[in-house]
Nucleic acid binder design. Sequence first.
DNA 1: GTAAATCGGTTTATTTTATAAACCAAATAA
DNA 2: TTATTTGGTTTATAAAATAAACCGATTTAC
Lengths: 95, 95
Amino acid sequence: MLKELNPILHSQLRLAIISILMSVEEADFVFLKGQTNATAGNLSVQIDKLLSAGYITVEKSFVGKKTRTTCRITTLGEKAFEEYVNTLKSYLKLT
Amino acid sequence: MLKELNPILHSQLRLAIISILMSVEEADFVFLKGQTNATAGNLSVQIDKLLSAGYITVEKSFVGKKTRTTCRITTLGEKAFEEYVNTLKSYLKLT
DNA sequence: GTAAATCGGTTTATTTTATAAACCAAATAA
DNA sequence: TTATTTGGTTTATAAAATAAACCGATTTAC
């Protein structure tokens, strides 16, 4: 029986966000928007979902007078990502 | 910039179906249902989508008095799967 | 033999997701 | 001072996944 693919991660944009955060330790909204080419609205929604799932932390601060939203992956998020990748491999190795 | 993940394949059930068909040369409805643990309705819908995309062929026949729906992957389907896997790797290798 | 249950599905309705559009406050540029 | 841009959020819409209802044919149980 095939294991289920964590639906929180099985989304193009959320997977991209998490992948980036796995490699980068922290990334702000503007950086993520540029890397993923997502619209701001979509990115905002998907960041919220990852936050609600406990997969990332979100910190709002100021740089000069501009707001800055910084995201980091949590341990839970790392584990979820690793498990997602392993599950995915069980699908793909059938090739 | 991240490439887009083929949305026809970026679906848990359709990916499972295609993965199975990559390994098995042909599979009927009942077999796919058992392997994927999907409901008949969901499986029927997703098979239709893969058929419409030209990724599989679907052949209906009889075995004795029972109907049999046999699926096979097409060359286009194989190519799409391979490209999907490669794109996915570009997401995951960011780890 | 016939009523009820099962098999192999399809169709339709509902829920969930993803995406886009509209909006907002603050800052900067013209 | 009035656009315009920046850095987002909220809300509405479109698309997708899933579940529920249904269907005809076949068995099974009585």
